[in-house]
C-alpha cells in the first residue's frame, strides 16, 4: 500500500514537472486554437504535418477542429501541403520522428489524416 501511494505521488510530481518543450510553431498553434491540449508538428520545405490531441470536452468535434486547422494553415502557407490529424497515434508517431521525413513515412502519417477519404 505504501509503495503504491509513493508510486502515485511520484507519478503526479514527475508529470507536473515536465518541461514545456513546444516549438514556436506549436506554441502559436496552441495560442490560436485554445481547444488543443497537445500538439506535435513536422514542418519541412513543402509539407506541414500537425498532429494534435484535443481537450477532453471538445473531443466530440475533434475531426472538425482538425479540418478547420488544415483549412486555415492551407490559406496561411499556400506553398505547403498541409495535413492534420486528431488521432492520438499520429501524435505518438510524430513524437518518434527524429530523422528527416521520408516519403514512405509521410504516407504512413497521412493515413492518420481523417479528412482524407479512405477506400474501405
Amino acid at each position: 500500500m505504501r509503495i503504491m501511494c509513493l508510486t502515485i505521488v511520484s507519478l503526479f510530481l514527475l508529470t507536473s514537472c515536465q518541461a514545456d518543450t513546444d516549438t514556436p510553431f506549436n506554441q502559436q498553434l496552441k495560442a490560436t486554437y485554445p481547444d488543443i491540449h497537445v500538439v506535435e508538428s513536422i514542418v519541412t520545405d513543402d509539407v506541414i504535418y500537425v498532429a494534435m490531441i484535443i481537450k477532453p470536452l471538445k473531443q466530440f468535434s475533434e475531426q472538425k477542429i482538425a479540418a478547420d486547422i488544415k483549412k486555415d494553415l492551407g490559406k496561411k502557407y499556400p506553398n505547403h501541403l498541409v495535413y492534420t490529424s486528431s488521432d492520438m497515434k499520429a501524435t505518438i508517431e510524430v513524437r518518434k520522428q527524429t530523422s528527416p521525413l521520408t516519403q514512405e513515412r509521410l504516407n504512413q502519417l497521412i493515413s492518420y489524416d481523417q479528412s482524407i477519404e479512405k477506400d474501405d
Binding site: 488521432d87 497515434k89 499520429a90 505518438i92 493515413s111
Partner: peptide, 12 residues
Amino acid sequence: YLYFFDFSEETV
C-alpha cells in the same frame, strides 16, 4: 496497443 502496435485511435 497504440504505442507498440500499428493501431490508430479508431481501430485500437
